[in-house]
Design a protein around this nucleic acid. Structure first.
Lengths: 110, 110
DNA sequence: TACACCTATTCGCATCTCCGAATATGCGTA
DNA sequence: TACGCATATTCGGAGATGCGAATAGGTGTA
């Protein structure tokens, strides 16, 4: 593959990943995986200020991770793609294994 | 689940994702998925300065994404967990679909 | 020990991201 | 139009991150 094109793809890929690189956005994605909600509902569920949510939702929207649908004055947000949750779950597994290895090491040293 | 604990898990999860949020680190992970390599080999393959690689490799190591094994003066790096590539591939699919949707929209507007 | 090679770390700087607070925009109803 | 509610955006500052350049540390060999 063309080297320059590959770099651009990796650049886009990194931007997608940085879309996930925030604890609040992860919480938002898992909350929306459970069921679609409006901004206000999310604000109540996740105990975040509404502007904070709108800002994070815009980032997620720009990456196609959530879908927004207006219904009157409300906007319902939903998970844009279930594969995102699958990817997050995979990373969670890796994380858990890594933590187990670390704590096993700490135990062995004690 | 305890609300505070959930926040801490999401915090860790976000750190794992931010480990992926760099085009060079993505290139490193895919390169190592093909076959284990030393730092110098990676520097040649990916055309990066050696200190840059060492810095990124440390970040990946700290998250358990790559494994390092010393052999004499060389250090061989390998992908720490295949699930990372699976997660990255999933995100790449989502990214590709999102781009297709966007370009279809642009076409429709033209 | 001295030297060469491989790998890791530090430093200074530019850039980015997040947040709270305030403000702006959009929508429905009277 | 005026008002209230839902959502989105902007602004300034604090903290994090990436880079190049220089340097330090680790390992094998003579």
């Amino acid at each position: 593959m063309d080297k320059q094109l590959l770099k651009e793809i990796n650049q886009m890929h990194a931007q997608v990943c940085s879309g996930l690189a925030d604890p609040k956005r992860i919480a938002i994605l898992y909350a929306l995986a459970d069921n679609p909600q409006t901004v206000t509902q999310l604000a109540a569920t996740l105990e975040m200020p509404q502007p904070t949510l709108s800002r994070h939702l815009k980032i997620l929207r720009d990456h196609g991770m959530v879908a927004a649908e207006r219904d009157g004055a409300n906007v319902y947000y939903a998970l844009g793609d279930k594969r995102i949750i699958r990817a997050l779950d995979l990373l969670r597994e890796v994380m858990a294994d890594h933590l187990n290895k670390r704590s096993a090491l700490v135990d062995a040293m004690a």
